[in-house]
Nucleic acid binder design. Structure first.
Lengths: 184, 184, 184, 184
DNA sequence: TATGAATGAGCCTTCATTCAT
DNA sequence: CATGAATGAAGGCTCATTCAT
């Protein structure tokens, strides 16, 4: 019985539950969108409703936690000296749905602190890769970080709205437009 | 207040109600997004719930009616011989939220007939303006209509997600990227 | 256009509409049960909602009108000197759903005048056929009309609840029980 | 008044709620029939709408739960060696409305598994009492269980449709018909 | 601290009934 | 008199959130 594994496991279950909730949230959100019932996430995580609320008092907090991980993985890429804007984009395309929602959120909930923080991080990260691209002459010298962020925003929003099957192909087409726009 | 006159105004109220519902839907959707409660739309239109359902049996039908009007206004612009892609874009920017939702829908509900039909219309309309731009040398000769549609999609999705105050400014920035991409 | 045939045809349409409504009601009720929306009946009759209400101010009135016709057809059978209780039953079986609903109504709405009247008629009619059966020795001399009415009630209620395909077979089985009960 | 205590009484209220819902459902259904609003049942049970749906996801599930209890009480009777078909009937008469609805359901929803199961149980139970009656010579040796089930069906359907005041009297009259039919 | 049932507000939808034309 | 749209009161159902255990 899988119910064996789930009883009151006491405080030590805390971190595990948190992880399980984030994983479940990713799955559920990517299947049903960001309006999916929270109860579905708790169920999928094998965690009580109450625990979900303890870890993530509202939907936005949970979403922010997901974004956090995604940004971290972008940072890892940028930390690699050899990485290019294309690598960066490839990861964003991978993250498709989440990236897009992150951007939506960054656009809309400008006042929320948690989101402010994510915005700062992603802008900084993007700034670093842009600087490197400029230095290596792969993009125009006067390409502004803000414009690249804008392009990425549009890119992410687009691919999240495309059915998975066409995502790569459409992503390539879209990005080649921006290649042209930023070409030296 | 629109709550004033509310009795059975008889069948002659039909067309008025239909109009009022579309107007209310535009307002409500633009304030709360396309998941806004239909009941709020009926209320704002000063119309009974039942009438809303008579005119628009489901959410998609109502949305399609809104799109219909929007596309019509794009067609009017393209019909004007002197109009340019920038004029076209200006109108899309005006329609902001609706345009974006239209595009979302065109991406997602590929199977629905009503949406299919809208897609056809908007592709045709865009094709006409693109052809004209190419002929006048304002964009690259090899610019594909599909790529322009893609750019417009991203553009519309972006501006819909930007707070109204920054919409024009952000729209300009974004579109200048595409200007660069399609420049001859 | 089929709307041609339906406009305000003036007062002369009254009786026609009444007939059409009863016919439509039979069809709709037999397909969807007696809780079917009245609007469906009006639609099927090709008649406005308002006209339905003019002719039949409430659901019960409409149902009573149907019953009226059914009882009339039972009376026709009994009027035929050669008819037997089995003929009578055959007609009831034919009327299945309506008969059963009639009986339900007779049981429940004891106070309603329209129903009182139907009850009187059906009891009288049944009394006549029972008397004849007794006289011809086909049933026990002490068989009471009331008991036969009771049996018919149960019979009708049963067959209305049986899927149409098994109706005849189940009806035969049920009635043979009563045959045994009333056998001389 | 059951409206008194209404707060979140915690999970321990679960079984109580379940019971209260079944009791309330019996009452409401017997007063208003099986189409009564479920919300009325929740209200009468002093339970939130949501709890009703947790325990009984749809109307049929709730009805099946009621039937379940009724059949159990029939089984108790049959388990008593000394019990007769008349005792059995007396209980069915007691259960009047529910018995009838059970039978309606058994007739109509032939495909539903929950109902299938109830049908099997009631047929088996009836079979046992019939066998005993036959053995003791109280009914004809060739009386088929199916015919007795049929008789019971009609009996139950009848008494459910009779106002409570006349139920016993009408029940007696009806059953005496079947007595005659099954007499040795 | 974790659990998961309880709660109830709110949305969608249907339909009986009214009434202007 | 007929028409058929308008109305709005319910009812079904879902879910975010609370809270006893």
């Amino acid at each position: 019985m899988e119910t064996a594994a789930r009883k009151n496991r006491g405080p030590s279950a805390g971190p595990d539950n948190r992880r399980a909730l984030i994983v479940a949230a990713r799955e559920v959100f990517s299947l049903e969108g960001f309006h999916a019932p929270l109860s579905a996430i708790a169920r999928r995580a094998g965690v009580g409703q109450g625990s979900l609320y303890r870890h993530f008092p509202d939907r936005l907090t949970l979403i922010a936690a997901i974004f956090d991980e995604n940004i971290a993985s972008l940072e890892v890429i940028v930390d690699r000296e050899s990485s290019t804007l294309d690598d960066y984009l490839a990861e964003i395309l991978e993250q498709a749905l989440v990236s897009s929602a992150l951007i939506d959120l960054m656009m809309l909930e400008r006042s929320d602190d948690r989101i402010q923080h994510l915005r700062t991080r992603i802008t900084a990260t993007t700034g670093r890769i842009v600087a490197r691209e400029r230095a290596s002459g792969r993009i125009r010298a006067d390409a502004a970080t803000d414009d690249v962020v804008l392009a990425i925003s549009m890119f992410a929003a687009l691919i999240a709205r495309v059915p998975e099957a066409e995502r790569r192909h459409t992503g390539d087409r879209a990005w080649s437009l921006f290649h042209a726009a930023f070409a030296p």
